[in-house]
Design a protein around this nucleic acid. Structure first.
Length: 651
DNA sequence: CTTACGTTGGACTT
DNA sequence: AAGTCCAACGTAAG
């Protein structure tokens, strides 16, 4: 019997340590092993991938490639510039492959791709071995099954379902050697995929870069691509990818047993930089440069040791391992819902809220198209100002600029800007924000990004919409002097501490002294050589009240993304004119113009305050009898829960 | 039915 | 630093 000729297909497992799929390949005792990475048309055309994340991935690929070469000097990571779906059937033949091995992936698009590839392999007589999913702690499909086929919507649900599945797998050994590849010449031409829809078109400088260098790259040696080759601008992120990078860093983290054992996420500062308050393991987890299970067990071993020594330890959900549990929770939810998890439309677990800038939907497929409806030009402008870090709220702008430039922001900083865009500020669809994060984050993980945006917008996972992040108070709590702002919004670098979070309140004299003018809407860079920083794009307290009333109303109406009324558009009938989407000037509820009048009233710079005074109309929806009854019932149980949402006592 | 709790709010008082 | 209130969500356990 001939020895196996194995194609090992690297995807989101760019590492050699703790890789059960790679072990499965090596267990075949192959005659040759081709470690490959190939283009993915979906990844290139239908997922937003900015230059920083590409660079991080390229780093990871280069690192894996050099590790492979260390284990076998004739081998490396062979990168082929054609999507797997068309490439692999031809490759099986050209390289006389007997086995295709890859790690399981539960991302919606990956499932689709892998089904196609598996079918074509079986047709070609190639045996497919799908290695255990190791991007997560448990196999997401198994947890889903243990949870009755329903998405895990809280961390306790995930823990309970995970416990039923069993213990989290211990890490396995790193291979000490690898078989070499055979002949790597090819006798077929490159096929370019149908590039539509290409939602990245506007982000690339040259559209041709992705495929123009031919199937084996510019030097015909299957090299790892460069950004230049991809037609992209150089990366600006200081964060560097690679398995060896993170394994070194991990040892430094773990060496501090007290830090590791007592880590509590809510106590880490979103404003810290150089160094950050957390260790940025997320991008390595995404690309598979770091195994989630390896990380988990290394941490858990330290926690166990400290327990035995009767030293303080932190526990989920705030501990380090708790952070990994949240990842699993989102993966299971995604595995349950597939594509619909990533959108409001047809999503059974996503509340329907009549956000501004809603996604356009392809009614044939039921999927969002990547485009959106501009229901209000003013809201589109707010969205663009949020995206570019020109909202006039320095805390928000600093975070958004850090995100754009470096591709990573602290988890709580993500909370701040996500709340601001959706339920606590602009009332713009969470799907718009998720797309920006998808493009810019180096650690973008579809399941986690989608889940967290739903969480922050109170459309799923979380519902306490009255707990709202202030763009001023929340930043001050962590960074009283505004160091993060001074770093990422340099035009405010010399603003006195007193005004750093609200520079529009600084008297002209102080602005002059600080070398900045506070005016306009962010369209001007400088005036007479003096940098300009914009005024706030709206009065936050007014806007906050509009959002809370709008969401309260939407909750009362009680639709989800898969409700027939959402699917056919008749949801509009359930929202009266002013409830359909609170626009500027409309304030619902008994609160009236809460907070509009500035209590301080001392600054003299309010003449252009974004929100004009208008008469407030009640935000009364047309409510179905059922929803009305439900709302009524709730009122009876009020008034007895003083302190119900006070902070949990911590030891 | 009631009560407790939920990854990480804000403003104010003591 | 800790406690209280604000206005009040869904879910699960009792």
């Amino acid at each position: 019997m001939p020895q196996p000729r194995v194609l090992y297909w690297f995807r989101t497992d760019l590492r050699l340590h703790d890789s059960p799929a790679l072990k499965a390949a090596l267990d075949l005792k192959p005659e040759v092993l081709y470690p490959i990475w190939c283009w993915d048309s979906h990844y290139v055309y239908r997922a937003r991938v900015g230059n920083n994340r590409w660079q991080f991935q390229i780093d990871c690929m280069n690192d894996v490639s050099s590790t492979i070469t260390k284990l076998n000097d004739k081998s490396k990571l062979f990168v082929l510039r054609e999507p797997a779906v068309t490439l692999l059937p031809k490759l099986f033949k050209a390289w006389k492959i007997t086995h295709l091995v890859f790690e399981k992936d539960t991302d919606a698009y990956a499932k689709e791709r892998d089904e196609q590839v598996t079918a074509s392999a079986e047709k070609a007589g190639v045996k497919v071995i799908v290695g255990p999913q190791s991007r997560t702690l448990w196999d997401s499909d198994e947890v889903l099954k243990a949870h009755g086929g329903k998405p895990t919507m809280s961390i306790t649900q995930l823990q309970a379902a995970g416990a039923k599945v069993g213990a989290i797998a211990r890490p396995i050994e790193t291979p000490k050697g690898l078989p070499g590849p055979g002949d790597v010449s090819l006798d077929f031409d490159q096929e370019r995929p149908d590039g539509k829809p290409d939602i990245n078109e506007k982000y690339r400088e040259s559209d041709e870069g992705t495929y123009s260098s031919g199937i084996a790259g510019p030097e015909s040696n299957y090299s790892v691509p460069t950004l230049e080759e991809l037609g992209m601008r150089p990366a600006t992120t200081p964060h560097r990818g690679g398995e060896s990078v993170i394994l070194d860093k991990l040892e430094k983290i773990l060496a501090d047993e007290e830090y590791t054992g007592t880590f509590e996420k809510p106590k880490t500062s979103p404003a810290a930089f150089e160094p950050q308050s957390t260790f940025l393991t997320s991008p390595y987890l995404h690309f598979g440069a770091l195994s989630a299970r390896y990380f988990y067990h290394r941490v858990e071993d330290i926690v166990e040791k400290r327990r035995k020594e009767k030293k303080a330890v932190s526990v989920p959900p705030t501990s380090l391992t708790g952070q990994l549990l949240f990842r699993d929770m989102y993966f299971v939810a995604q595995a349950a819902m597939g594509y619909s998890f990533g959108q409001t439309y047809n999503n059974s677990h996503c509340r329907f809220i009549p956000w501004h800038l809603p996604s356009k939907v392809d009614l044939k497929t039921g999927l969002i198209t990547g485009e959106y409806e501009v229901d209000d030009e003013a809201k589109e402008k707010e969205f663009q100002r949020w995206r570019e870090g020109k909202t006039g709220f320095p805390w928000i702008d600093a975070i958004m600029r850090q995100l754009k430039h470096e591709g990573w922001i602290h988890h709580l900083a993500r909370h701040a800007v996500a709340c601001f865009l959706t339920r606590g500020g602009c009332y713009i669809s969470w799907e718009r924000g998720a797309e920006v994060f998808e493009e810019w984050l180096v650690d973008h993980e579809a399941a986690c990004n989608i889940g967290n945006w739903q969480w922050l917008s109170c459309t799923a996972f979380y519902s306490q919409f009255y707990r709202c992040y202030s763009p001023v108070a929340f930043g001050k709590k962590w960074d009283d002097n505004g160091e993060l702002i001074r770093k990422y919004v340099p035009e405010l670098r010399d603003m006195p501490k007193k005004y750093i979070y609200e520079p529009h309140k600084a008297p002209l004299q102080d602005q002059k002294k600080a070398g900045v003018v506070i005016k306009g809407d962010g369209s001007e860079g400088e005036v007479d050589g003096v940098p300009v920083y914009p005024k706030p794009m709206f009065d936050f307290n007014t806007q906050r009240e509009i959002c809370i009333q709008g969401i309260k109303n939407a909750y009362r109406v009680g639709l989800h993304g898969n409700d027939p009324k959402v699917l056919d558009g008749s949801w509009k009938e359930l929202f009266s004119d002013d409830a359909a989407g609170p626009t500027e000037g409309k304030v619902g509820g008994p609160g009236g113009m809460l907070g509009f009048e500035d209590a301080e009233g001392t600054d003299g710079h309010h003449e252009e305050s974004a929100t004009p005074k208008r008469s407030s109309r009640r935000n009364v929806p047309k409510v179905s009898p059922e929803a009305s009854r439900k709302g009524h019932k709730r009122e009876h149980s009020q008034g007895t829960l003083d302190g119900a949402f006070g902070k949990k006592a911590k030891s």
